[in-house]
Design a binder for these strands. Structure first.
Lengths: 221, 221, 221, 221
DNA sequence: GATGAATGAGCGTTCATTCAT
DNA sequence: TATGAATGAACGCTCATTCAT
């Protein structure tokens, strides 16, 4: 009974692996809220419920800590997308599922998303590289699906007017649009991830399909 | 005669308005290159060719200086878009022109673009607000054109399945896709701003038009 | 009259060169008293009567500051030695005068002496180099005089048993003995620098001369 | 059987005295390499092959550990000198033997030598005292021999111009010269300890003897 | 109008030392 | 006996900002 008095601050002695994960999670929150530069290691330590030296003992430096956050977030997000987009269905269906998962992930792990996409230019080279790697991981997934979608449609028709570079372009735009829509979702909490993904598909996929069918829009001369 | 000794560095006595613009332009370059936090006021003063107290005398504080940069960049960019998209043509044509102008602007004023879009989360509340305002300015333009495009198409058909919220959505996605494509452009320098805008139109506009025509994609039950 | 109230802490606004020298002098005292590692920049600033950032603005870093102290001390000491040892007299007389000046300098500038000779050898490469340079400056002077003394004596005798390497050896031992004797002087304040130098000359020079004369000591087989 | 799993790192349970010596030896190496302040207790523990708390359990604190190193080094060195200088021979022969032993010791136990002679003098009172004690131990041996050498020579001559204070002076200079010559030896590895000691004897002893004979050098009036 | 001189406040990092097991 | 986990207290350094001229 009396021991319960100390439950609130057990100053627990945790094994390294557990503490390490806790620190990274705390850092994720602080970095997302404040941004890399404005984030202060003291606060991360406080949020993690430990003293500052522990952060350095386990993670090395502020930069390495941030890199660990990026890896953490990137791994979680890529896994979510990949798992949802997996399977033997038609590419467009898989893309829709992947986008759904993506929007779902962002809604649930806002911090990870912020870490991954709103930090780029004012960070040391090492971190920038890490960020690029993380971004590419998702982009590659999308590009692959888009490319297969084009190939499928082409096969139906035997024309092949769209090539790999087009898939690149579409993927980039698609990812950018998706990025941006995460802001839109914040002001439309009633929209489910699936609905948002559906809307985006109708914006992009239908158009692409029709372009393959020859229905091209051109500005009047 | 003695004045010739100082000719190399005339330490010109400039009117306030000119000095102020020079400072903002110097700040734009430094902020874009280093990011808000890593940018150092000393360097801004040096790039502007004056002493640090002048920066404070004219712009008040680092934050205010950054806000001034945002306003500067935002005004230039919005003007470019608005001017290009102006006129009595069909909305889709105006959108294409606006997008073309946007991509052109970004290519020519990289610093302004970086200031506007790669800085968000790690800045004080005042600055974040300013950034949001700047973003909204462009978004509003796009939203208006999209909305009119929908209205036009609806008028032809009398159904009105798409509403203002849809315009919102499309605008957000469109802007996000455009944002993202600025990265794509860097690895495709041979693509003109117009071509990029055209590709984006074909991705989005054709699809939207067809959706209005009832050609909706839905995931299989 | 009232202004006298502020005289105690004039918070003087001094030109850079003056402040810089003051800082180095303060650093000399603190480094000598505490040693490089135990010395704290805050205390140096306090002793110099300014704030810490000034130290960094003017001297760059703790290491550079220490290097500046070394140069300062080394220049003063070498100058004292060289000036005293200058002239057209016989080498042994010049050596004696140089040694006298050396002992006098150490008595008067204890801090400089400590900086130059009582620091641990594990202080960053830059500092180690600077220290080596300083040590060599004195050693070179001594070596030169010893060498000429040997040459003179040899000339009298035409035998030349002692060469340049011997001059090296003698100079090294001589400087080491002088170093050590600065401690002895502290417990014998009644001995003037000249007397100490004289005693040292009699210990070393006489022996060297006699060795040249063939009076060599060897251990019994 | 299970114990075999730990065979690679037996984490031996050693008696206190053995562990203690191991720790001191590890500390000696680290302190010599890095200097007192730059040495880190973590590294000492690692080099000793144990955990940090053991160091504190056995040696108390960093300062006490360093003091233990000094005692260790001093004892070894004094023993080497004393043993070599022992016997019933003439003082000058014993001095030469002692110096030879000294140079040999330094060549073989560089770390102990560095600990004793290359540390800044500003290391806490306890340590300074311990260092002084160590220095005096050697100095006393030398002083004794010098004094007896003077006495012997005086006895031959019945003049006694040199007293105890002179022995002090000579010993101080001799030890300083020997200190300094350890540096010289590093650039002259071909010279044996005995040869170096011999050279030093010829520099100092011959001169001293001749001074006793009345052959004094004085600067010209 | 313009600047050289100066600083308060804070941040990333380290290290000797101890606690709980 | 032995250690992994944990921290209080500094220290080097930087930067936005202001004062005195």
């Amino acid at each position: 009974m009396l021991t319960r008095l100390t439950v609130e601050k057990p100053r627990r002695r945790l094994p390294r692996s557990v503490r390490e994960r806790e620190i990274v999670e705390a850092a994720l929150r602080v970095f997302a809220q404040r941004g890399y530069h404005a984030a202060v290691v003291d606060e991360i330590a406080e949020v993690a419920g430990i003293s500052k030296p522990m952060v350095y003992l386990y993670l090395g430096s502020k930069e390495e800590l941030f890199a660990a956050c990026i890896r953490h977030a990137s791994a979680a997000m890529t896994a979510a997308f990949r798992q949802a987009a997996d399977g033997g269905d038609a590419p467009e269906l898989r893309l829709w599922r992947g986008l759904s998962a993506f929007f779902g992930f962002v809604a649930e792990h806002r911090d990870s998303w912020v870490i991954l996409h709103r930090q780029a230019p004012q960070l040391g080279a090492a971190i920038t590289e890490e960020l690029a790697r993380a971004r590419d991981a998702v982009m590659d997934e999308v590009r692959g699906l888009v490319w297969r979608g084009i190939a499928d449609a082409d096969a139906d028709e035997g024309e092949g007017r769209l090539g790999q570079e087009d898939a690149d372009f579409v993927a980039q735009a698609l990812v950018g649009a998706a990025d941006s829509l995460t802001d839109w979702m914040e002001t439309h909490p009633e929209e489910s991830s699936e609905r948002v993904a559906l809307r985006l598909m109708n914006m992009v996929w239908v158009g692409m399909r029709d372009v393959l069918d020859g229905e091209v829009w051109t500005p009047p001369a």
